[in-house]
């Protein structure tokens, strides 16, 4: 039993350490993803106005309110030391009742996995473009104001 107990302890502590490392790595990749998306997004009208290498004016700049599929998106960019320090949502699609109760939780037959990048050899891609394009459009208009 002692042996099993220590194995369990070992497993639990390894799992904790692993999840901590995963969390740390993920937070880092989150940062990179934000910068990369802001830097490389090319489909939208004004995405060229978002450029992480530009030195912006310090201050708080409010973007346009942009109509997306199910509401409006408006962001505010906070610039500190010439860089984007924070982006806040002033408006966000709200025509959903977040407070309502959801009945009937299903039994735990759901499965989980860490997402993994797959081969891009597909016919067509599903993704939530509407809100993100609104975000980029609003942010771009905020950053125009923040340009030196």
């Amino acid at each position: 039993m002692n042996f099993v107990g220590s194995i369990k302890k070992y497993l639990v502590s390894s799992a904790l350490i692993a999840s901590f490392i995963f969390y740390a790595i993920f937070q880092r990749s989150n940062d990179t993803a934000v910068k990369k998306q802001i830097g490389n997004f090319s489909v939208e009208n004004k995405a060229s106005d978002i450029n992480p290498t530009i030195v912006y004016k310090d201050g708080i700049f409010t973007g346009n309110s942009v109509n997306v599929d199910y509401g409006n998106v408006q962001v505010q960019a906070v610039i500190k030391n010439g860089k984007i320090a924070d982006i806040k949502f002033l408006e966000f699609p709200t025509n959903h009742k977040y407070s309502a109760e959801v009945s009937a939780y299903s039994t735990p037959i759901l499965r989980t996995e860490a997402i993994q990048v797959q081969s891009a050899n597909v016919d067509v891609v599903s993704g939530a473009t509407a809100t993100s394009s609104g975000f980029i459009e609003s942010l771009a208009s905020a950053l125009i104001l923040a340009k030196k």
């Binding site: 940062d31 934000v34 949502f89 990048v117 597909v122 809100t131």
Partner: peptide
């Protein structure tokens, strides 16, 4: 990037989401 590839014929597929919410976005 793509994180899943499905094989569909006849079905509809829709994705809802927000832009990345992380430390930068509230």
């Amino acid at each position: 990037e793509i994180i899943k590839v499905l094989s569909l014929s006849g079905q509809g597929i829709a994705t809802s989401g927000t832009y990345l919410r992380g430390q930068h976005i509230t």
